[in-house]
Design a protein around this nucleic acid. Structure first.
Lengths: 210, 210
DNA sequence: TCTTACAAGTTGCACTTGCACCTTTTTTAT
DNA sequence: ATAAAAAAGGTGCAAGTGCAACTTGTAAGA
């Protein structure tokens, strides 16, 4: 994941902090982040640690909207629709820089080149996110589990052109990612194995048809 | 949809065009856009008209990735994963501004406040896109058609808190949006009507449970 | 070492969905 | 005004999937 501070020196980052009047907050594992930092529209950047954006549905169901790692950018205006019940939970000890969103259009900031680089970095990062969302949508919109799996393999394969795919998560998590029942996915994985299309060993999947 | 030229005067927009060395292209209905404009990484802005980003799968299937209206921003680095077969097709007479992506980090641009405002607008627009993608993902990840429909209604309802939802598309398109078979969706709509949860009249859906 | 979790893996069954194939209605083009 | 095309609407059936309820394997903590 690219950093929003890419191409900026330590010195410039500090100037940026001053200019934007940022606050840095620390959270411990399982702590909720939003109530502490939310005060109008903000942008948050994970400096250290990781967190998870969750949505709580009317029926109590929890959906993971996004995993936030170091350098991830999040915010009330970013990716979060209004009028929904969100929770952002620290997964470990986590440090967050918080920027007032309105300060991004403060005319006093406009003539500093490091501010400009920062904006460009934010733009790049959100574009990267859109790509990830599009990938997931392409998997989700397939009607059958077999097609979802093959689409997922195709997308991963095209990133490296290697027959071996290493899942970044458990198979259970993959089922959630694809929006299907876990055991139904296992059944389909078995069928793909039986058809000699794949081999599965732990979180390593080998594509035999490539 | 916000314009990438929001808060910029006609004069500033022209300065921006100069600074970025943009080109403006015109396309007629059904014409393919990418072959004409693609030459390294670019950002495109629809000035007038509309277009559609499509992906062609190995089996010939066409998937609509995104609908581009006036003021939409698209690009090789934006939302499009590499290594895929894309087509961008004009849906009518369409005018497109094309910006060289590399020029966005050209140091000569960095000290102009209108350039800065432009970057901030691009950031806002991509954030808006992420929200839309997240909404679709929330619908797609529901396992049953009934739940997908109810989730879709919920999301739309929370935008206005009005019991009446006006679909921005045909019911057929809604089925594609939700990644389900059209006639299966019709069947479920019928069930929802029978349960007195909704009323459907053309592209207007009334939520009776709100 | 034993216990406790949790992921992996499996199966039967009921229900849902995709698909093919219709009809009817509405929209668009000539 | 008429024909053609597209969307809306519907139905039977086979196939696919979700769910519940297991077993097995594995890693971590007491």
């Amino acid at each position: 994941m690219n950093s929003p501070f890419e191409d900026l020196t330590k010195f410039q980052i500090n100037k940026l902090y001053d200019l934007l009047g940022v606050h840095i907050y620390k959270f411990s594992k399982s702590q909720e982040i939003l109530p502490t930092i939310k005060n109008g529209n903000i942008i948050g950047i994970i400096l250290e640690g990781s967190a998870q954006i969750k949505n709580i549905e009317y029926n109590g169901n929890e959906i993971i909207i996004e995993n936030l790692e170091t350098n991830s950018v999040f915010g009330t205006n970013i990716s979060l629709t209004n009028n929904e019940n969100y929770e952002i939970i620290a997964k470990e000890n986590t440090q967050v820089v918080v920027i007032d969103y309105e300060k991004l259009i403060n005319p006093n900031n406009l003539n500093h080149n490091y501010f400009n680089i920062f904006l460009k970095n934010l733009f790049d990062i959100t574009n990267e996110k859109i790509k990830e969302k599009n990938e997931r949508i392409r998997v989700l919109e397939k009607k059958q589990i077999r097609d979802k799996l093959l689409e997922y393999f195709e997308i991963e394969y095209k990133k490296s052109y290697l027959k071996r795919i290493y899942l970044p998560c458990s198979l259970k998590d993959l089922a959630d990612y694809m929006g299907v029942n876990r055991s139904a996915m296992f059944r389909e994985l078995k069928h793909l194995k039986e058809d000699h299309l794949i081999e599965v060993k732990g979180n390593r999947i080998t594509l035999l048809y490539k």
